[in-house]
Simulated assay, not measured.
Amino acid sequence: MHKKNKQRIKKATKTRIKLRELGVPALSVHKTGQHLYAQIFAGDGRSTLASASTKDKGLVADGGSCTNIEAAKAVGTAIAEKAKKAGIESVGFDRSGFIYHGKVKALADAAREAGLKF
């Protein structure tokens, strides 16, 4: 494992510990070179309440990129809508150690605009 990835995981672990202490549902974001994923976990971290990703059908236009900011906004809007259906209005934000910039920021802003509070 590269040093940069170890540092990211260390940051992520600290955030997840704090969210579990608070007992609030967590919006967790993970990004790879090809896709972007978002999940909402229960306060205890044991079950997934809602999820969305660029792999979901109809979320990203055919032939469109799954790794750009528009795709991140689509995932943010989708996860907020699924959270509302599950009865979740407020979550803690777990960016998985990724920098709050670019795709992660676009996903968070789109989720906020769609009505999710964090």
Rank of each mutant, 00 (worst) to 15 (best):
22 L>F: 10
15 T>P: 06
80 A>S: 13
26 A>R: 07
78 A>C: 02
6 K>F: 15
44 D>I: 02
9 I>H: 03
14 K>P: 03
72 A>P: 06
16 R>L: 10
81 E>N: 08
114 A>L: 12
32 T>W: 13
6 K>T: 14
4 K>T: 15
10 K>D: 14
26 A>M: 06
35 H>F: 03
10 K>S: 14
98 F>N: 09
93 F>I: 14
36 L>K: 01
58 G>H: 00
54 T>F: 06
111 A>Q: 05
89 E>A: 03
85 K>S: 09
41 F>Q: 05
95 R>D: 08
110 A>L: 03
10 K>F: 14
38 A>E: 05
44 D>W: 01
108 A>T: 10
28 S>A: 14
104 V>T: 12
46 R>L: 13
35 H>V: 07
22 L>K: 13
70 E>Y: 01
29 V>S: 00
68 N>P: 02
42 A>W: 00
21 E>K: 06
24 V>W: 00
92 G>N: 11
21 E>R: 12
60 V>Y: 01
49 L>I: 05
31 K>T: 13
85 K>M: 08
31 K>R: 14
89 E>N: 13
86 A>H: 05
88 I>D: 12
71 A>R: 01
84 K>V: 10
46 R>P: 01
90 S>C: 13
83 A>C: 09
48 T>M: 08
29 V>W: 02
18 K>I: 00
46 R>I: 04
107 L>S: 08
44 D>L: 10
107 L>W: 05
81 E>C: 08
91 V>F: 04
2 H>I: 15
9 I>A: 15
63 G>S: 07
82 K>V: 07
112 R>H: 12
10 K>E: 15
23 G>S: 11
35 H>T: 01
69 I>T: 06
7 Q>H: 12
4 K>L: 15
35 H>N: 11
104 V>L: 11
92 G>R: 01
20 R>C: 01
48 T>F: 06
67 T>W: 00
81 E>T: 11
116 L>Y: 00
38 A>I: 04
83 A>T: 12
21 E>S: 12
21 E>N: 12
96 S>Y: 14
92 G>A: 14
107 L>V: 07
77 T>N: 03
17 I>Q: 05
104 V>E: 02
61 A>E: 09
95 R>Y: 11
38 A>V: 07
97 G>Y: 13
53 S>T: 11
40 I>F: 03
84 K>I: 06
34 Q>H: 10
57 K>F: 02
9 I>S: 11
21 E>V: 11
94 D>A: 10
97 G>N: 13
9 I>C: 14
11 K>V: 04
115 G>E: 05
51 S>N: 08
3 K>Y: 15
91 V>K: 11
53 S>N: 07
94 D>H: 08
1 M>C: 15
